[in-house]
Design a protein around this nucleic acid. Structure first.
Lengths: 340, 340
DNA sequence: TTTACCCATGTAATCGATTTCACAGCTAAA
DNA sequence: TTTAGCTGTGAAATCGATTACATGGGTAAA
């Protein structure tokens, strides 16, 4: 096969400057170890030939690619996009680049990402996908490359993880709603077996109990989609004694619920208070604006990236960076109020 | 510096199978050129050692990285995220990976991306950023790597580009509004010197003229933000003879306008029709839902990626893939109606 | 003055795969 | 039977940088 044309090599620069390739390499990587006049001579030759180091060749020898794989379920999801921004800011600050691993429900792609890791194409991996990727009979975490999980917790695994304390946040929502004087509650759940949902569910239940609510709260089954929130609303509307406070496991469902009950003349927050989770952009714009738990998405990404940097630059002493939990404050907007 | 530990090499596999490294390499890359029994022997050794090819080494020799750089102004922008999805689908189908080049207004990062290209780290580049990246005194397009521009047109440049025909789309909006019986129009512009704005502006003006509207339309200066749409609205409200049809250069501004006039009791579409551009997700959810021009974002990404693949796999005959324009239909929703 | 060491530089091995070239064995045509 | 051609395999060059090791000149300590 025809190979692409070659560019100027380090040898060209060395020849022009009348020095060895070793000296050129050192001038570029550790300028302080070469004498000033030599440095000047080499830099002149570099400029003259407009030389750029071949990173691939450098990678081969130094066994580093300065690339991090970020595995996401779906790049088009704005939630992850914001996390990505935080990741990028931190990683690019340390000279690392990002390879996007978009799962898109494809086992083939997942296997390919596992290969990337085993074949030394990346120096580290950030997992936003809630599981350890696998393919061709092996798991990503048995490769000799550091992994850090973010946002979507991965159970039964010893990786460092970064996220928020979902349970505590949900508990605070419960306290808040009880504080507003509510007595009858409902929870709109996420998909069965989703770990985030389990934590938020548990936190909400505990919070109610802790605040002295005896009566068990209602439960609508959802799956994190707008539609499932709407479905919960139609169920809600059939009830003769309706709950006055709704906590949805995410904002999409909260908004789906809210829009649907409004169509039947139910007023929010007069008749029912609604609280979501995530603080997606839309929650600031819908009518009424949505009270919700704010996830510091960019900060989550940045924290995870920093953790990964520690692992990659792994001074042995700090070889075990531990998991981190970030603050997730509730932001009060107009969809919740004291009981009328 | 301590190097990471080494993995199994092709030489290990060759030794185990009792063949040369050349044969192993061929078995993996072109199985059809080795004899079946040899193939079996090698594959057994591969399985036994759980060998994975070192991609970096392969890249060095074959001068291909199977990586494409995608330069975006801001990864957190949902518009680009959707384009990215189309890109990813096409590129990953052909075995290419994606490196994200998030500009984030940083000249240093831009320069770094230029370096990536010149240093042979990527095989091709997709530009969603409306300009040819440059840094350290050189432009990306003088490197020997194919570039394709998407969405944001780059003027005065011979690259293949993929986008929609903004002018034609805006012209259709004008026709549509005139068809509804409107007589007084206003345009909310994008930032000065933005090429997309210029095209939409021109198209709208031409469309009105072509439909027989003599009176020049009003013009509110905006910058693509929600706030600038709101600002246009306050200006609009002070007018004694208000336009009845508003075309905003993007959806954010259209919605900013819409929300703001509603607060003053102006009814949409009874008192004024509003049309946006882009068809962002929110335009389907706002009240009333927004009539707008739909950009086939994912398809745009996919088309650009296909074009780039052609360039990269560059059979000389088709070495000049030309620019492409995709259909951008107007979608009629509830923010526009016949004049009351 | 001698010994020891350091510093700046050069020489050459090395990273791990791909690929060119040479060659042996075999088949088909002359 | 000889010649040409084809096929499958191995030996070794190669991609382009980094870096271990060697070396020579200089300075400081003994």
């Amino acid at each position: 096969m025809a190979l692409p044309p070659r560019a100027t090599r380090i040898a060209d620069v060395a020849a022009l400057a009348g020095v060895s390739t070793a000296t050129v390499s050192r001038t570029l990587a550790n300028p302080e170890v070469v004498s000033p006049q030599m440095r000047e001579k080499v830099m002149a030759a570099v400029r003259q030939t407009s030389y750029t180091r071949n990173i691939v060749a450098a990678n081969l020898r130094s066994r580093q690619t300065m690339l991090v794989l970020v595995v996401v379920p779906d790049i088009a999801n704005p939630f992850f996009a914001e996390v990505l921004r935080g990741i990028d800011k931190t990683l690019s600050g340390s000279g690392y680049g990002i390879i996007i691993g978009n799962l898109a429900n494809s086992a083939a792609k997942e296997a390919h990402f596992v290969d990337l890791v085993f074949s030394g194409q990346v120096d580290g991996v950030l997992l936003l996908c809630g599981h350890v990727p696998q393919g061709k009979g092996r798991q990503m975490d048995v490769a000799n490359v550091p992994l850090v999980a973010v946002c979507e917790f991965i159970p039964h695994v010893t990786l460092p993880q970064v996220g928020i304390d979902n349970q505590a946040a949900a508990q605070r929502v419960a306290q808040y709603l009880v504080g507003l004087g509510h007595k009858r509650f409902a929870y709109i759940s996420g998909p069965a077996s989703n770990i985030l949902d389990k934590q938020r569910d548990a936190g909400f239940g505990n919070g109610l109990k802790a605040a002295g609510i005896r009566k068990p709260h209602l439960r609508f089954e959802g799956d994190f989609t707008f539609q499932s929130g709407a479905l919960a609303a139609t169920e809600f509307l059939t009830l003769k004694q309706r709950p006055t406070a709704i906590f949805a496991a995410n904002d999409e469902m909260a908004i789906g619920f809210l829009k649907t009950v409004q169509k039947s003349g139910v007023k929010v927050p007069r008749d029912v208070s609604v609280v979501g989770f995530d603080d997606i952009e839309y929650s600031e714009y819908c009518e009424p604006t949505l009270t919700t738990v704010h996830q510091p998405r960019s900060a989550l990404g940045a924290a995870a990236a920093r953790l990964l940097l520690d692992c990659m630059q792994g001074h042995e002493e700090i070889a075990k960076p531990r998991s981190q939990y970030l603050e997730a404050p509730m932001v009060e907007r107009l969809s919740s109020a004291v009981i009328g």
